[in-house]
Amino acid sequence: MVVSNVRFNLVQPGLATEELAERYRAAVEMAAAADGSGVDTITLEEHHGADDGWLPSPLALAGLMLGRTRRIGVTVCALITPLYDPLRLAEDLAVLDLAGGGRLMAVAGIGYRPQEYAAHGRDWHARGKLQDESLETLLAAWSGEPFEHRERTVRVTPPPATRPHPLLLVGGASKAAARRAARLGLPFFPSAHLPELEEYYHAMRAEYGTEGWCLLPPATTALLHITEDPDRAWAEYGKHLLHEAAVYAGWQTPETRSAVKSAAATAEELRAEGVYRMLTPDECVAFAEEQGPGAALVLHPLCGGMPVDEGWRSLHLFTERVLPRLKD
Rank of each mutant, 00 (worst) to 15 (best):
E116G: 14
Y276I: 06
R325C: 08
Y200N: 10
R150C: 07
A288W: 02
C284E: 12
A245V: 05
L87A: 01
L15K: 09
T69W: 02
G38I: 06
V95E: 11
A272R: 15
A178W: 15
V107M: 14
G100E: 00
L216P: 14
L169T: 06
Y24M: 10
L135I: 01
G304D: 08
A233V: 06
G36H: 02
L98W: 08
V285E: 09
R277T: 09
L186C: 07
G101D: 09
E18S: 14
H120K: 08
G238Q: 04
E290L: 05
V95M: 13
W234T: 14
E273D: 04
R68Y: 09
E133D: 08
P254S: 12
L326M: 08
E269L: 00
P164E: 07
L326R: 11
A249E: 12
P159E: 11
E255C: 01
T137A: 04
A27W: 03
R163A: 05
H149S: 13
Y112P: 01
L216H: 14
V260T: 15
Y248D: 14
P217Q: 14
A206S: 11
P301R: 08
L168D: 03
L98N: 11
E236V: 15
D51A: 10
G212M: 10
E320M: 02
P324A: 05
M278I: 13
Y237L: 15
A62S: 09
D229K: 07
E45R: 02
V74N: 04
E18C: 04
A90M: 06
V6Q: 01
Y248N: 13
L224R: 10
C303H: 06
E211F: 10
E145V: 01
F318T: 02
T75P: 02
R257H: 03
S134M: 01
A259Y: 14
H316W: 15
L215K: 10
S143K: 15
A16W: 01
E196M: 05
A60C: 11
G36Y: 03
Y117T: 04
L167G: 02
A267V: 15
R257Y: 06
D92P: 10
L138P: 04
D97S: 01
Y112A: 02
S4D: 01
V2Y: 00
L326Y: 09
T69M: 02
C284W: 12
P166I: 09
P114F: 03
L89A: 00
L317Q: 11
A21D: 14
D35Y: 09
G292S: 06
A126E: 12
A222C: 14
D231R: 07
L55C: 11
L64C: 11
E196Y: 13
E255F: 07
A259N: 07
L194V: 03
Y248I: 14
P324W: 07
A203R: 15
E133R: 02
D328A: 06
R23Q: 13
E29F: 02
P166D: 13
L64K: 09
M30L: 04
P217K: 12
H125M: 09
E273P: 00
G144A: 03
N5S: 04
R113F: 06
L169I: 03
M105G: 10
D97V: 03
A178L: 13
S57E: 11
A31Y: 12
G38P: 09
R7G: 00
L326T: 08
Y237F: 15
E236M: 11
K239I: 03
E320C: 00
L326N: 07
A33Q: 00
A173T: 13
